[in-house]
Design a protein around this nucleic acid. Structure first.
Length: 552
RNA sequence: GCGCCCGUAGCUCAAUAGGAGAGAGCAUCGGAUUUCUAAUCCGAGGGUUGGGGGUUCGAGUCCCUCCGGGCGCGCCA
């Protein structure tokens, strides 16, 4: 990593120059950055940071550092001081060529870290099987899927998990709603309960049941029949959900049923633990957890007066279960509507003696759909929503995935479907993929033109123009982008990177002839650079889960 | 009322854990293919980063305050 190399050089010089004066200086805020192109290839802010502790003007400090760095003539081509005290660097072409060589050798391993021996779990989507996945679930699925892949790249052992509840009131309502639809099929005039599920998807299912059961359950409703309809509903809903996820290329290692926490005694175990620590009490016939002992929030009910545990209760048990499964950290991906749940959960974790950094939440803001210029108000119950499947039908898997990945999870996202459908060719995903297709095409064309690709040969012909240096510099950056993505838990770092990288490539392609029969050495050198680009793009696309088109 | 998130070009979004004239795409206008894919490239217009204070050598980014929007504040999940 080139940045690291420069960072080390600068740090060593600074330490050598002012060893005694900067004992307390922690280098916090010290950075080697990619500056605006007019300032060179790399830049650092060290001189400004040292001004205060050293009580010397930044420009003086910079001068001194530069003077000493200049001795390092195997790395730096040029060093300049500019503005308030920035030190700007450009590197020797050999440094870049070595960097490209490294990428060419490592190929798909480039940027992949050695196993850390750390286990993390990402839990997301976790929709109960009451209907098809919505666009909001899609956003969550993609954020989770991409981040889980980045965790793997960074050396973590990753488990992806889908948590669901197929008991409870929601499922009862679903069963009843389905039964009504079934009855309606035989023109039995019944209405779906107001808080039931009104979506058309139950009609489809009811049709199937009608031909299977004939009139057996028409007008008849009891516990037994409810269970039958519930099972039917659950199975077919999961079938739909899983097929949507499969389409999107999102896979879960574990589907975890909330019910198991009651069955295997985890819930009881947690209650007993809390009781033993004197952190629960009874009031109004219910069992309460002393949330207020830990955070500035009201106490919450764990067991309702009717004896049924609350969602909060089972969620604590679930996370206790996760902890017992020896994950070092877990990440829950939640919609913004659940943010109020976070302090309570943190309190519970603390109460159970689970380390602070174990439980983490990645919150994402809502997705608003715009269709025919109007906002679509979405409600699962009323069946007023555009399903994730419908979205995929409209814009395709690549665009769906890319679009969700490209926006900061913390930003409200407005998805204009009309634009996505009618202008699908202008979607950024095509811009990025086109670069890949162009490279593929170049290698096909090279064969036609009789230019034989020889890897790692003729590289000395590269980097005679600034564009090539900058391209390699940016390829070299991939490693760090992965780290940044994980640090910020923001998949959009990757799409940003891809777009900037590809923009440079499109420019390079336009300005230069890659395949020149008159100059086969240069052509081969440039093909090597293209190969490096292909390797990095391939890495990025695999993580984003978008396809790698040979031609477009 | 209290809490969390957000407010950046006409629209959708970026902006490298505070860094140097705030950038893309779409939309508008004007250019570039006898040569490797024009799903590309080049150029123009478009901004007091919601307003106002503060911290800092430096603020879209941090702090305070006001305005506007989203979401929470259940013995729902």
């Amino acid at each position: 990593m080139l940045k690291r190399k420069i960072e080390k050089e600068v740090r060593d010089i600074v330490n050598a120059l002012w060893e005694n004066e900067i004992k307390d200086f922690d280098f916090k805020g010290f950075k080697v950055e990619i500056p605006d192109e007019r300032f060179g290839e790399f830049s650092t802010n060290i001189a400004m940071l040292l001004a205060r502790p050293l009580k010397i003007k930044p420009l003086e400090i910079a001068k001194k550092i530069v003077h000493n760095l200049n001795e390092k003539d195997d790395l730096f081509e040029n060093i300049e001081i500019a503005g308030p005290g920035f030190i700007n660097f450009s590197l020797k072409k050999d440094v870049y060529i070595e960097s490209l060589k490294n990428i060419l050798r490592l190929k798909k391993e480039y940027g992949r870290k050695k196993p850390l021996g750390k286990k993390v779990q990402l839990e997301f989507v976790s929709a109960n099987p009451t209907g098809p996945l919505t666009v909001g679930h899609g956003r969550q699925a993609i954020i989770g899927d991409v981040l889980s892949k980045v965790f793997k790249e960074e050396g973590y052992e990753v488990t992806t998990e889908y948590y669901f509840n197929d008991a409870g009131r929601q499922m009862d309502l679903l069963a009843q709603s389905l039964w009504v639809r079934y009855n309606q099929f035989f023109e039995k005039n019944l209405d779906i309960p107001e808080d039931g599920y009104h979506g058309d998807y139950l009609k489809e299912l009811a049709k199937g049941l009608a031909s299977k059961f004939k009139r057996d359950y028409v007008g008849k409703w009891n516990e037994e029949i409810k269970e039958i309809f519930k099972e039917m509903a659950k199975d077919s809903m999961f079938k739909i959900i899983k097929s949507t996820l499969r389409r999107l290329g999102v896979q879960f290692d574990v589907y975890f049923n909330e019910k198991s926490l009651l069955e295997d005694g985890t819930v009881d175990e947690v209650i007993n633990l809390l009781k033993s620590k004197n952190l629960v009490y009874e009031k109004d016939g219910a069992l309460w957890f002393k949330v207020s002992e830990f955070v500035d929030e009201d106490d919450k009910v764990l067991i309702r007066s009717n004896g049924i545990p609350t969602y909060f209760m089972t969620d604590i048990a679930y996370h206790y279960n996760k902890f017992k499964r020896k994950f070092d950290r877990v990440y829950d991906i939640w919609g913004a509507d659940h943010h109020g749940h976070i302090p309570r959960m943190k309190a519970a974790m603390k109460a159970l003696g689970i380390p602070d950094d174990f439980f983490n939440v990645i919150l994402h803001q809502f997705v608003t759909l715009k269709k025919e210029g109007k906002e679509v108000k979405m409600s699962t119950r009323k069946g007023e929503f555009v399903t994730l499947d419908e979205l995929i039908d409209s814009v395709g898997v690549d665009a769906t995935r890319y679009f969700f990945a490209m926006i900061d999870p913390n930003t409200h996202m407005i998805f204009d479907m009309d634009l996505a459908v009618s202008k699908s060719n202008e979607n950024p995903v095509y811009y990025v993929q086109y670069a890949y297709a162009r490279i593929k095409s170049l290698f096909r064309k090279a064969v036609e033109k009789g230019i034989t690709y020889k890897e790692e040969e003729n590289l000395e012909f590269l980097c005679t123009i600034p564009q090539e240096k900058l391209l390699i510099r940016d390829l070299d950056l991939f490693d760090e982008i992965l780290e940044d993505t994980l640090r910020d838990l923001a998949p959009n770092k990757l799409t940003n990177y891809a777009e900037k990288l590809v923009a440079k490539f499109h420019n390079y392609y336009t300005d230069n002839i890659i395949l020149d029969i008159e100059n086969k050495e240069l052509s081969n050198a440039r093909l090597n650079l293209c190969k490096g680009m292909e390797i990095i793009l391939s890495r990025v696309f695999d993580i984003l889960g978008i396809s790698k088109p040979e031609k477009m």
